[in-house]
Simulated assay, not measured.
Amino acid sequence: SIYKKPVLFFNSGFDCNCCVIETFCDEKTLVISDKLNHASIHDGILHSKATLLRYKHLDLSHLKILLKKNKDKFENIFVISETIYSMDGDCVHLEELINLKKEFNFLLVIDEAHSFGVYSYGMAHNKNLIEYIDFLTIPLGKGGGSTGSYLICNQLYKDYIINKGRKFIYTTALPPINIAWNLFILEKMELFKDKRQYLIELQELAHSLVKKYNMNTLSTTHIISIIIGDNERLDKITNYLKEKKYFVYGVKEPTVPKGTSRIRIGLSPSLSKDNIIDFFQELNYALNTFF
């Protein structure tokens, strides 16, 4: 196995996240979740009847405060984080999070929906940290170009889900063609090395242009959210960009907090560097024209 641990396959990342939490967590469990975690994670917590606390987005010092306050109050503590967050394009400090796990001995759930493929087999794999992660979910609908999700965990947890996980038991398996495609991608992952390297170059170019034009972003990855402000201004800018043949949709309130409506750019190795340069020139023009 590439991941050197047992793997279970789910029909979707949503079901995978939800099933892990609702199967292993109950009213004697505390779940501490990053404030911006996926809806699937939140739904799993609601179904589990666990106590929920949220820490400020990517703020591991806040997480540590919550752990100190609650370490002796529950039978189990689960901490849940994604690696790359799709709405802001920012990234967890995975090594620091695992250092906290070693200190407080909680169960760790990590979602790699937006890092699988872009970071080869995932960020945890690249950093040799899989052994420290109790439940590693790898949804395949983004960089995997597919559907379904891997769950990487130990054999005891895998067996327990097979026997107790409602979203695993009471659903129809994906068609064999999907499974074959997922296996094909896994086996060929190293062949995409040049594309991954080129994507890094595009990412560096895009971030240099964001800085040059003084655009507002929290991103440090290949997902770049440019904060525009209000919905009306966002509509003017996206309509202008569509007229210029850029396929851009805005992310509006209330999906994101008031005043943070944004354009979200997902870089792809199918783009050229000229595409990136031209797009940011047009976006800069729009940002300085539409108020």
Results as ranks from 00 to 15, higher is better:
34 D>M: 02
248 V>M: 03
138 I>M: 06
81 S>P: 04
165 G>K: 09
193 K>P: 00
213 Y>D: 06
273 K>Y: 08
242 K>D: 09
216 N>W: 03
64 K>P: 07
241 L>A: 06
37 N>L: 14
14 F>W: 09
20 V>C: 04
96 E>P: 02
190 E>W: 07
272 S>Q: 06
266 G>I: 15
92 V>K: 09
40 S>M: 02
80 I>P: 13
39 A>R: 01
224 I>H: 00
135 F>P: 00
131 E>I: 10
57 H>Y: 08
211 K>M: 10
183 L>S: 11
105 N>Q: 12
237 I>L: 08
134 D>T: 15
178 N>F: 15
125 H>E: 15
240 Y>S: 13
32 I>H: 13
35 K>N: 11
55 Y>R: 13
102 K>A: 15
1 S>M: 05
194 D>G: 03
129 L>R: 05
179 I>E: 14
86 S>T: 02
236 K>T: 14
164 K>S: 12
262 R>P: 00
5 K>Y: 03
154 N>T: 13
201 E>R: 12
256 V>N: 00
118 V>N: 01
108 L>A: 07
150 Y>V: 06
189 M>H: 08
195 K>D: 04
63 L>W: 12
215 M>W: 03
98 I>D: 12
6 P>S: 09
63 L>S: 08
225 S>D: 02
241 L>W: 01
204 E>Q: 10
51 T>G: 11
202 L>T: 06
29 T>S: 14
185 I>D: 04
123 M>C: 07
162 I>Y: 14
37 N>C: 14
178 N>D: 09
272 S>T: 15
159 D>F: 11
126 N>S: 08
3 Y>S: 13
134 D>A: 05
239 N>H: 06
233 R>V: 12
14 F>I: 01
132 Y>Q: 15
290 F>Q: 13
134 D>W: 07
184 F>H: 04
110 I>V: 10
199 L>Q: 08
72 D>S: 06
21 I>T: 03
39 A>M: 05
267 L>H: 02
67 L>W: 04
82 E>R: 07
7 V>K: 02
210 V>N: 10
16 C>D: 07
42 H>Y: 12
184 F>C: 04
195 K>L: 06
166 R>H: 14
149 S>A: 13
157 Y>G: 01
52 L>H: 12
51 T>I: 02
259 G>C: 12
269 P>S: 05
281 Q>W: 11
73 K>F: 12
27 E>R: 07
184 F>G: 02
253 E>F: 13
36 L>F: 05
44 G>F: 10
25 C>K: 04
15 D>V: 05
12 S>D: 05
43 D>S: 09
275 N>P: 06
251 V>E: 05
43 D>A: 09
256 V>K: 00
225 S>A: 11
31 V>D: 10
128 N>G: 03
21 I>E: 15
192 F>M: 01
233 R>C: 07
258 K>R: 09
159 D>G: 10
5 K>R: 09
220 T>W: 00
214 N>H: 09
50 A>Y: 14
155 Q>V: 12
279 F>R: 05
13 G>N: 03
21 I>Q: 13
167 K>Y: 15
248 V>Y: 02
175 P>L: 08
277 I>F: 12
254 P>G: 02
170 Y>D: 10
169 I>T: 07
132 Y>H: 13
261 S>T: 07
122 G>P: 13
203 Q>V: 00
197 Q>F: 02
101 K>V: 00
201 E>F: 10
254 P>V: 04
219 S>N: 00
16 C>V: 12
266 G>C: 08
54 R>E: 15
